[in-house]
C-alpha cells in the first residue's frame, strides 16, 4: 500500500510527483473507466432505492435523503475497499513480472511508488463516483427539505435527474469511444428507463 513517502516535500513538488506517478502508472485511464462504471452503478442503485421508497409509500424527504445518503456511503466504502483489494493484487503481479524481466528489485523505485499511489488514487475516484451520482440524484429532495419544492414533485424529479445523469455519463463515454454523444447518452438513459419499468412492474402488485 502507498505510504505517502512524499508527504514531506513542498506542495508544488508534491503535485509534480503525483502527476508523474499518474502518468507512469497510467492511473487516469483506469480511474476514468472506474469513474464511469461506478457512477453508473450509483445512478442505477439510487434509482432502485427511490422507486422502492415511492412504492413503499415513504414521503418524508428527510427519511428518503437519509436512506439515499446511507446507500451512497455504503457504495463509497464498497468502491474504495474493492478497488484497493483488486488493484493492489493486480499491481503487485505487474511489479513481480517486471522484476523478473528486469532481473532486479524494483523496491524504492519511482515505478513501485507510482503503483502504490495509483492504488489509492483509483480507490478514491472509485469511492467518490457513486456517492456523487447519488448526491446529484437527490438534489430535488434537498430542495424539498428546504421547502422550496413540494415533496411529490421532488420525488418524481429525483428519478428524472438520476436518468439524466446517466445521459451525462453516456456523453463522457462518447468522449472516450469517439462515437455519437446522442447515441451513447440515449443508450445509458434507456437502461435507466428499463430499470424503472422493471422495478415498477415488480413493485406495483406489492
Amino acid at each position: 500500500m502507498w505510504r505517502g513517502e512524499d508527504f514531506k516535500l513542498p506542495l508544488r513538488e508534491k503535485f509534480r510527483r503525483y502527476i508523474e506517478y499518474i502518468r507512469i502508472s497510467e492511473a487516469n485511464k483506469i480511474a476514468r473507466r472506474y469513474f464511469i462504471m461506478n457512477s453508473f452503478d450509483g445512478s442505477v442503485t439510487i434509482l432502485g432505492v427511490l422507486l422502492g421508497v415511492i412504492f413503499g409509500g415513504i414521503t418524508d424527504p428527510s427519511q428518503i435523503v437519509g436512506i439515499g445518503i446511507a446507500t451512497g456511503v455504503a457504495l463509497m466504502v464498497s468502491g474504495f475497499s474493492g478497488t484497493i483489494i483488486a488493484e493492489e493484487a493486480e499491481r503487485n503481479k505487474d511489479i513481480k513480472e517486471l522484476e523478473e524481466s528486469m532481473l532486479m528489485d524494483l523496491k524504492d523505485t519511482v515505478y513501485t511508488r507510482a503503483a502504490r499511489f495509483s492504488i489509492v488514487y483509483v480507490g478514491i475516484v472509485n469511492a467518490i463516483a457513486p456517492f456523487l451520482s447519488i448526491i446529484i440524484s437527490l438534489t430535488p429532495l434537498f430542495l424539498a427539505l428546504a421547502n422550496l419544492v413540494p415533496v411529490d414533485i421532488a420525488l418524481s424529479a429525483t428519478i428524472v435527474v438520476a436518468i439524466s445523469y446517466m445521459g451525462i455519463l453516456g456523453i463522457l463515454i462518447s468522449n472516450i469511444t469517439g462515437r455519437s454523444k446522442l447515441r451513447e447518452a440515449v443508450k445509458l438513459m434507456a437502461i435507466g428507463i428499463i430499470t424503472t419499468i422493471i422495478v415498477s412492474i415488480i413493485l406495483k402488485p406489492i
Partner: peptide, 11 residues
Amino acid sequence: VLKPHRPNIVD
C-alpha cells in the same frame, strides 16, 4: 540501458 516501458524515453 534496460528499462521498463514506463516512464517513456521522453520522461
